[in-house]
């Protein structure tokens, strides 16, 4: 079944307390951050701390990512080497601007997997698109490696690169967000929306999450545990939608068992997109614990 990635909670890899306690808030994913949240002089200690955390803490169903430093910095390659050896299986690559950026990481991961005797391709990539150039290359980035499981949008750096201020309305982000959703959808991977930095603005946050869902994002990066419930709320389908989806799936299963081709439900034809949508709703409902 497709993994739920409604929330990706950023946790700085410098804080042992948060590294242990983050799963309590039940995000779908945790992203341990070695990049922007960590000062240059603590890059080594954060990496060591995350390595030991990965080796000893059982995060159970929570999918674990690490935002490593970009490979063009002195820290990126060593981050990836140390973390994969410690058990990391999902790398979030910041500043993904071209397919070459992804291919470089892909090659490095292939080497590391070989050295460690891991299956080829076991480590996955989430490419973070955070610049105008990255947005324009989103389609190529999304398919640059068979390891890609998603692309995420980083609005703070993006607005800087286009010379705009980030607004609550998000008009300056509209084209970029849509392009990222389209690129991910065409590649069959997840699109994850950007963070919302004002943790005190609950109303504005909900509005942005609703707009992310409406645009087609699979989930949202969050920077505070308090934001998780809102995202899960918005991304959880209504009971009416869930009931309908279950009826669609039951009808399809019944039709298949009877060897029927095209079927209808309540007078409407059920075709592949309808079934796919129903399956997605059932996945979300199960993840939310309402089915």
């Amino acid at each position: 079944m497709k993994k739920l990635r409604r929330t990706m909670l950023f946790v700085p890899a410098s804080n042992p307390n948060m590294m242990v306690n983050a799963p309590i808030f039940k995000p779908d994913c945790i992203i341990f951050d070695l990049e922007d949240a960590i000062s240059l002089r603590e890059k080594d200690s954060a990496r060591d701390l995350l390595v030991e955390a990965l080796k000893s803490i059982d995060y159970k169903d929570c999918e674990i990512f690490a935002r490593v430093n970009p490979l063009y910095t002195p820290f990126g390659e060593e981050d990836v080497r140390a973390l994969v050896a410690a058990g990391l299986r999902n790398v979030r690559l910041p500043m993904s601007e071209t397919e070459e950026d992804i291919k470089k990481l892909d090659t490095l991961l292939t080497d590391i997997e070989k050295e460690l005797g891991l299956d080829n391709g076991v480590v996955k990539i989430l490419g973070a698109i955070e610049t105008a150039k990255g947005v324009l290359n989103a389609e190529k980035i999304a398919v640059a490696s068979s390891r890609m499981i998603g692309i995420s949008f980083g609005a703070e750096d993006f607005t800087r690169t286009i010379g705009a201020e980030r607004s609550k309305g998000g008009e300056e982000l509209f084209v970029a967000r849509s392009k990222i959703v389209l690129a991910a959808a065409a590649a069959g991977i997840d699109a994850i929306d950007t963070v919302f930095a004002d943790v005190d603005d609950a109303k504005g946050f909900r509005k942005e999450v609703e707009s992310a869902k409406q645009l087609g994002f699979a989930g949202k990066s969050v920077i505070h545990p308090g934001q998780i419930r809102t995202v899960h709320d918005v991304f959880t389908p209504s009971q009416e939608d869930v009931d309908k989806a279950v009826r669609v799936i039951n009808a399809i299963e019944e039709a298949e068992s009877k060897g029927l081709g095209v079927i209808s439900l309540d007078g409407k034809m059920i075709d592949a997109p309808v079934v796919a949508r129903a399956e997605r709703i059932v996945t979300l409902a199960k993840g939310a614990g309402i089915l």
Partner: peptide, 22 residues
């Protein structure tokens, strides 16, 4: 009140820094 993983990690970093490896 650090857990074992944090003790191991912090010590490892301190050793590497003392040895001039980081």
């Amino acid at each position: 009140g650090a857990l074992d993983f944090a003790i191991r990690a912090r010590l490892k970093t301190a050793i590497k820094r003392a040895e001039g490896r980081q």
